[in-house]
Every structure is written in C-alpha cells, then in structure tokens.
Design a protein around this nucleic acid. Structure first.
Lengths: 337, 337
DNA sequence: TCGTCAGGTTGAAACCTTTCAATCCGCATC
DNA sequence: GATGCGGATTGAAAGGTTTCAACCTGACGA
C-alpha cells in the first residue's frame, strides 16, 4: 500500500506551491481556473486524500457530532439518532454513532475518545445520568447534551419527554374505557423512566378516586420482550377476582411480549385484556393486534438535542436549557373494543 | 471556554520536559513514580485532554474502525453492528457507526470523511455493491470489507450469507409441510438478496417436481411492514382456487406485515396461511404468532467482517476472501400446525 | 513613464504530539 | 579515584495541513 500522497507531493506534481494546493482545497475561487484544473488533476493522479488529522490540528475545528447511544438495538434510540442525523446534515456536520450497549465502562471509553477527537459536541443517553464523568467532559470544554434523560441539577442541556404525563395519559385512557383493575408492568425500578411512568399512572388513578390497591404493580428485571411474556404468565396466575382487565407497560417491548403471551394462551385482546405500551415504536403499530401506545416525538427529540449542542458550541451567550416534550396517546386496537 | 491545555502546559506546571509528559502518556513504566504522580496531578488540575489529531498525525495510526450501515432502523443491521463492535473491542479499537439511510450520496460523504480520518478500515453495507467509489477507496489504501453483499469480481473481502440456500431451505420446509401452492413475496427485484432468495425458492420448487406456475411471485416496492400488509391484501384478493396456502417472505418485516393483515382479517395462521420470514430478527420470535424464519448468523457476520478488515490492515500478505455463511431454518408456530 | 492596483501565488510559521538519540546522575565495581 | 552502567529525563525534529503577510506580474490610469 503506497503511503498516501501529501499536499507537498501534489504541489510538486502540479508545479505550484503548497499554499496554492491548500487554496484549491479551501478557497477554490481564489485560484485561477487553469491552475485549479492542474492541481485537481494532480490530486486525482496521485490519489491524494486530505489528512483530516492534520487539517483539524491546524484549523482547530472538527466537522463531526457524536451520539453515544444506550442501546442501538432498541428502535427508539435509532429513531432518535435519525433525528440527530437530520439536524447534523443541515449543519453540514457528520454524525458518528457510538453504542455503549448499556455498559458504563464502554460509555466512558467512548466519551474519552470523542473528547480527544475534539468533536463539536456530544449527545448522550447515559447509563447513569448522574455520573460525574459527564460533568468532567463538559467542564473541560466539550458541549454535552443529555438525551431522553434528565438530572436534578441543571448542569447541562437536556431533552426529554414528560414521563409522568405519559403515565397519566395511559391510565386516564384505561379509566375512560371503563377498566377498574389495572396493572402497571415495568422495571427495574431504579430507572427514572420506569418510576416516572408509574408515578403518572398512580396520579391518574388517584385523581379518578380509585382505590390504590386496584392498581397492581408488576416489576420486571428489564424492558424486554421476554420479560413481557413472563409478566403475562404472572398475570395469568392471579386469581380471577384480582386479575386486572388492562395493563399499562413501561415500554413497547414489554407490551409486545405481553401481547404475545395473551394471544398464545387464548386471551382475547382487548376483550379480556387491554394493553397500553409506551414509545410507539414502529413494531407497535405493526403488531398482530395494533398496540395502543404513548408516543414520544423521537425524531424531534434528536433534532432538538442536536440544535442545543450546536448552540452551545457556537453561541457565546448560550444558556443551558432543559427541554421537556409532551407525549401523546395513540389509541389502537389493543384497547379499543 | 478556556482553550484546552497542551502537553507543554502540563510540562510547565509539573516542572518537567515535554518529552516526559509524553512518556507518562505512552510508556508510564519508563518514568519514576514520583514524577509520574506529579505529571498526572498537573494533568488533572489543568483538565488536560490529549489531542487525538496531533497524536494521530505524528503516530500515523488511528484507533478506530468504521461501519457504514445501510439502515440503522433495521434490527438486522444493528445486530451485525454489535458483532463488529465485539470484535473491535477485542482488538482494542473503537467503532464508529455511520448511517447512510439508503442514500448513495450520504454513503459517499461518509466514506470520504472516514478515508480522510485514516480509519484502520471501513466495513460497509453499500447501497450499490458495484459502485466504483468502493474500489477507489480501497485503491487509495483504506481496507474495505463489504458486509452482507457480494460482487461478481473479487476485488475486496466480503462476508455474506448464502441467500439462494436460504430460499431453498424456506421452500423445502413448506413442501415438507405439504403445501402445494406457495407465494414468494419480495422486492424490489434489483436487490441481490431479493433475487437470490427467489432463485433458491424456485430451485427447491423445481427439485420437488412442482409445476412452476404454482409458485406465485408478488413483488413489493420495499422490504417493510407496510408493504407486507399490502401484499396480504393482494393475496386475499386472489380467487380461492389460486390462493396460496403458504407464503415465503424476503424478510421478516414483510412477514410481520403479512401476519398482521392475516390476523386482523381473521385468517388463521398457520391453519389457512403458513408464513416464513427471513432474517430471524428478535421481533420474529416475539410476534403474535411466532414466525418461522431463516436465520442468518448476524453477529458472526459482523465479527468475521471485522476480522477480515483487521487482517487486511495489519497482515502484509493478506489475500481477499469472500466468506459465505450458511443460513438456518428456525421453525416456529407460523408454519407448524 | 511612473505609480497603483488587484488577482494569483508563494513561503514560512504554527498547530500538538510522539520519537529517539543524547545527556545526566547516582552508584557499584575495579 | 576512575570507569562503566542503567535508569530517568531532555530537546529537537518530524508529521501534513492551514493561514497570512509578502510578493509578483500585468494592466490600467495619470
């Protein structure tokens, strides 16, 4: 493999100075058409590829944005990413995606590398929003925006969706549909989302004057399809008197698992069991019984996050903002008789 | 924002030369414990962050691998990515993901930037495997491996799965289950995968001595859930005599759409209609009627691709290889009465 | 004919790190 | 007391690009 040609080589080949080559690259209008042609030809001949490290070192500015995602296999996050991507494209930046796969260690090493690469900004859905590592990065000068999570202190910009409201919407809908025994399925409980959605569910329940013990909680060990099935089995095991007629799941994966269990064991949905999910991923609408779900503006979430980070990177009098979006209930067959 | 401290600043603060600081960073054993301490403290105090561009410029070597994915919202590709990620982690490289979202233009600009960044290697599932842009990149010295696609000429390494065999497996299974009228649903036809799977289906059909016209083909405009539903409607519109009792879909998204249509219109699966998908994404097993599907070794695909690209990057007598994996039929309820 | 001007072009400095040969120092050995 | 040794540290060069002040060359106006 022939080591890549440099501007110097191109300059020599085209019989111009190296400053001119750089001009062709960066300010093509300042160089006469003939020379430009000659230089471009030399580049093509030599297979010249601009060395981005050197460019960045000298120019001091990078052309990329990064999103450290929590779990690339969850469609929710890839949708957020595509919103970010759209914004990045508009700003003529390129987006690199890193996947921490739920591991704090991986997240940390991604953050470190991105920082060293002097990316314009880092968007991150952190394993633990309270990790001090995030503050460190921000303190050292790389703009950081937290996506789909929030923090008590307002130490950086964040975008999230009002999960308490989302929980309320879901349970209000079930109350409207006449259900009097409802289950909330979600976990693990240390996740902010899981707690907030539960909180909203309880608020709505209490506001309707229903007895607290008629809102059953079932805790799962993770937010997956498999756990949803498992939860279905546990529900089915309850004595008929105490068995809920509707379930609100902390996300769509759980809801899909639950739905699957119901169908395979002959439980009619929504006749015997109504189901509400959360996230409204594409597979929710595509399920065998299309799923009622709480929709989050995923793309918008991403786009807004990108705009915030760019503002922080470019605008001298930037101030941190915590943007909270409003979720929306999408009613489908799984709750509509 | 205080412009980031450099090794020089750290050296000054710690009262050592700048070479020593570099040693602390790269060969910590060569510097005495006390000095090391002092330097590390200075780094922490100043919030020093190593400038990766400068490092890379001088050292000439980058620590990253890239995967340009075709469509991040398809779980198949994120699974492939996680296989790559695992291999990258083993090799102590970090992986950046780029999403071309089915656009040749975006793909091109990602390739260009990655090349300029001198990544160790590029893995790509290209929009068009025959695009000359890929050759250019490779010719100029960046190792390129094509993932989940192949090319007639063997100009670079590739990993893929034998789609003809996959198609055969699917249809053989349906023949075994006694079906005599089968439909193949897939499209657009210019995709290699779609053609190959169809080809395999026809081979199996012919091998069983079935009349060619009893294998109906339904072409879709893309491989999505929506198109699957649409295909379901078209099937339902056929006169009963000519209506197939089983369908083989070119991917799981189509199959899920088809399943959804069947269930919502009261067609029993598999009783009246058996369905086979392709890819065996997680949602296939999680569907209301768990889907029989042709499984591809996704993670392995990714891992192998990463190994090939690393070999090309590091091994002087590397030779291009086209690895072809064998798919496997996973039979589930959607075909098992 | 001289001065001015503008469009092209040049050359050197700067960006920050790594590398490596050279130097330094204290200590053991003869 | 001189020599040699090894570990720790130093200083300068190199890597490819961008930037910017300076320079060159015709052309044009006076």
């Amino acid at each position: 493999m022939p080591r890549s040609a440099s501007v110097k080589d191109v300059a020599a080949a085209a019989g111009v100075s190296l400053g001119t080559v750089s001009n062709v690259l960066n300010r093509p209008d300042r160089v006469s058409p003939e020379t430009r042609e000659r230089v471009l030809k030399a580049m093509a001949d030599l297979g010249f590829v601009r060395n981005e490290s050197a460019r960045q070192l000298r120019a001091g500015t990078s052309r990329t944005l990064a999103y450290v995602m929590l779990d690339a296999s969850n469609p929710f996050f890839t949708d957020v990413a595509s919103g970010i991507d759209a914004a990045a494209e508009t700003a003529d930046l390129s987006l690199v995606l890193c996947n921490s796969r739920n591991s704090a260690t991986r997240e940390l090493s991604h953050l470190a590398l991105l920082e060293q690469q002097r990316v314009q900004g880092i968007l991150v859905t952190p394993v633990d929003p309270d990790s001090p590592a995030l503050d460190e990065v921000a303190r050292r000068g790389t703009p950081v925006v937290v996506v789909d999570r929030t923090r008590a202190d307002q130490s950086f910009c964040s975008v999230a969706v009002d999960d308490v409201l989302g929980g309320r919407l879901a349970v209000e809908h079930l109350i409207d549909r006449g259900h009097t025994r409802v289950a909330y399925v979600g976990g693990p409980a240390h996740l902010g989302q899981v707690r907030d959605r539960h909180e909203g569910a309880r608020e709505a329940w209490a506001a309707a004057g229903r007895p607290a013990d008629a809102l059953v909680a079932i805790e799962t060990s993770e937010l997956s399809v498999a756990e949803g099935r498992e939860a279905g089995a546990r529900l089915a095991g309850l004595p008929a008197r105490r068995r809920p007629t509707a379930v609100f799941c902390a996300n769509d994966l759980l809801a899909l698992g639950l739905l699957q269990h119901a169908i395979s064991s002959g439980v009619r949905v929504p006749g015997e069991l109504a189901i509400v999910g959360y996230d409204d991923i594409d597979f929710a609408a595509a399920a065998a019984v299309p799923l009622t779900s709480v929709r989050q503006p995923r793309q918008l979430l991403g786009r807004t996050a990108a705009e915030l980070v760019l503002d922080e990177a470019g605008n001298p009098d930037h101030t941190h903002r915590q943007v909270l979006f409003t979720p929306e209930l999408v009613a489908r067959a799984s709750t509509l008789g």
